[in-house]
Design a protein around this nucleic acid. Structure first.
Lengths: 339, 339
DNA sequence: CTGAAAGCGCTTACAG
DNA sequence: CTGAAAGCGCTTACAG
């Protein structure tokens, strides 16, 4: 494959000039520039990214570290990141931690070795030790779907506390007083926030009969895991409302309840989270808390990339999106409230 | 950050020896090795990937080029690729072409610039021009979910012809004689093969009343696109069976038919493709043709990586998985066949 | 506006 | 078993 030296020779200029033609074309006389560009095309010259990176310390690569790409919420988020990266001619390395802190550490290390220009991450837990470590190494960091705790970094997230309260309030308005909350791991930041939101909403209800709730924490926020846990519950199911950590869990819950001959929403109302595309097409179309997943990823990537393009000008930003309640058929008025 | 020279100095050896300690530890006296390893830890030395790649022409990066990561089939496939890569300490750059040949070319170029060690691709069309171009540049290539046409490369795919015939045969067995086939773009290789399978199955039916079928080609194999097309059909819907290009299309079709008060499977049987997780949880659980998406990705990545590890020993392989029919509730006997 | 030179951090024969 | 040296392909001040 042709290298920059071949191009220089054929164009009759020095190799530094070719480099300038590529990176700072405004410095060249237009005749020289044209000549060089012609040769570049002829030779199908493609600059070697490693060499370039080695000198300039830039490689147009960012890392994206996510708990679970199979989850449509993260898939959409990743798509947003990819599109933003593509627009700026960046490329993204996708890392799937499966929600494991250990894998997260390992991937962070791999990304550091690759000299990525920045890392976009939805951290597995609140603990910032690993992240601080990355920041120390001088790798730019931005948080997606999470705000930083004592860490200098851009962040783009959704107000999960508000999302939790939105869900609770909706069920309460419908007259539900006994609620099951079924979430992911207890130390998952989003889970913590949403439960806080639920509690806050309950506290703000002056009503004598504020709802009670019970929590279940799933190891994995998947259809399967949720389905199995509800299927295997041996105590009688005496809740009239269920708040799920995401729509996948809602699907699993709905399926398990269906098998127990509990109808949705006649007997029990179920509310999901994320409002994935599929929520509309599920057995029972799912009432859900909608988050702008694609925008989350897109915005975060833009922020990270723009920080890299002009570090001096950059000021860390914290962008917060608001979740929205989308009502479908999986929630309805509690029996006790019906005529 | 520490570099290899710092390590050499502190360990009192030459820098070549440090390099050997990292890459060919078996060459060193164990005492020297230990001393160096200790210093590496102390200094938290991480080798610079760019420098390494520049010299050794290896960077442990592979590219994955896919038409649509939001499609669960490809999401799972991508996960398989990621897991295989992770196991071999490789990293993957994810590229989403949105089914556009132009984006495919651009991404291929970007990947070439990044000097990836290999590219895993589900090409947008049969045409191999761009791929041949990549191969010429000396980048290893492997095809996923597609077999190569006149191209030296490993490939892992599913027998789509058989998949198509499986779908047709199932509907025929149930007594359906007027079938709508609703697929993606006509030049999409998988589409071509499945239609071939459908035709072959029809031809093999000696039966006097072999089924007739009509084709629709969608621009995008999405829920939305399928839904809109069926919703806007103004001719009367006189089919009793529908074969869909994937489960997403099936979901869209089922929704649109529902709005026209056509019940599934009482009036019309609908069969999907891919058997995504969600197929079970759809409004009507979808009968589908199952493909091992995760394994597809995992196997292809392994092949590509092993080719890189020992090019001399490598022999190109072509691995074919067989699709399976998974019967759920969206297909049933045609009315004409019922008592 | 262009060219010559140094150097980014490593790997890899080669000599000893 | 270890060290010295060349060089991968670029970018970047600097001189002119």
């Amino acid at each position: 494959m042709a290298n920059i030296r071949d191009v220089a020779q054929l164009a009759g200029v020095s190799l530094g000039t070719v480099s300038n033609a590529i990176n700072r074309p405004e410095l060249l006389a237009s005749s020289t520039l044209q000549r060089i560009q012609k040769v570049i095309e002829e030779l199908e010259f493609v600059p070697n990214a490693s060499a370039r990176n080695l000198r300039s310390r830039r490689n147009r690569v960012i890392g994206l570290v996510l708990p679970d790409v199979s989850n449509p919420f993260y898939t959409d988020l990743a798509k947003g990141v990819n599109d933003a990266a593509y627009a700026s001619e960046y490329v993204v390395i996708l890392c799937n931690t499966d929600g494991s802190a250990q894998k997260e550490v390992q991937y962070l290390d791999v990304l550091a070795r690759q000299n990525v220009e920045g890392i976009l991450i939805t951290p597995v837990s609140e603990s910032n030790l690993t992240l601080a470590n990355v920041a120390e190494r001088g790798i730019r960091l931005a948080l997606v779907d999470r705000f930083p705790l004592g860490l200098q970094a851009c962040s783009v997230a959704v107000n999960d506390v508000y999302g939790g309260s939105l869900a609770l309030t909706h069920l309460h308005d419908l007259g539900h007083r006994k609620i099951l909350v079924i979430m992911g791991k207890a130390d998952f930041p989003q889970v913590v926030d949403r439960i806080t939101g639920i509690k806050q909403a309950i506290e703000s209800i002056v009503d004598a009969d504020a709802p009670e709730f019970i929590k279940i924490h799933l190891d994995s926020m998947s259809v399967k895991n949720a389905y199995e846990v509800i299927r295997d519950m041996n105590s009688p199911f005496d809740f009239t409302g269920v708040i799920c950590g995401n729509d996948l869990i809602a699907i699993g819950v709905i399926r398990a309840l269906g098998e127990k001959n509990i109808s949705i929403p006649e007997d029990v109302s179920v509310i999901g989270y994320d409002d994935i595309d599929f929520a509309t097409s599920a057995t029972v179309p799912i009432t859900s808390i909608s988050q702008p997943s694609y925008e989350l990823g897109f915005t975060a990537a833009e922020l990270l990339i723009s920080e890299g393009e002009s570090p001096e000008k950059h000021v860390h930003q914290r962008i917060e999106f608001q979740p929205k309640l989308v009502i479908r058929s999986s929630t309805a008025e509690a029996k006790s409230h019906r005529p």
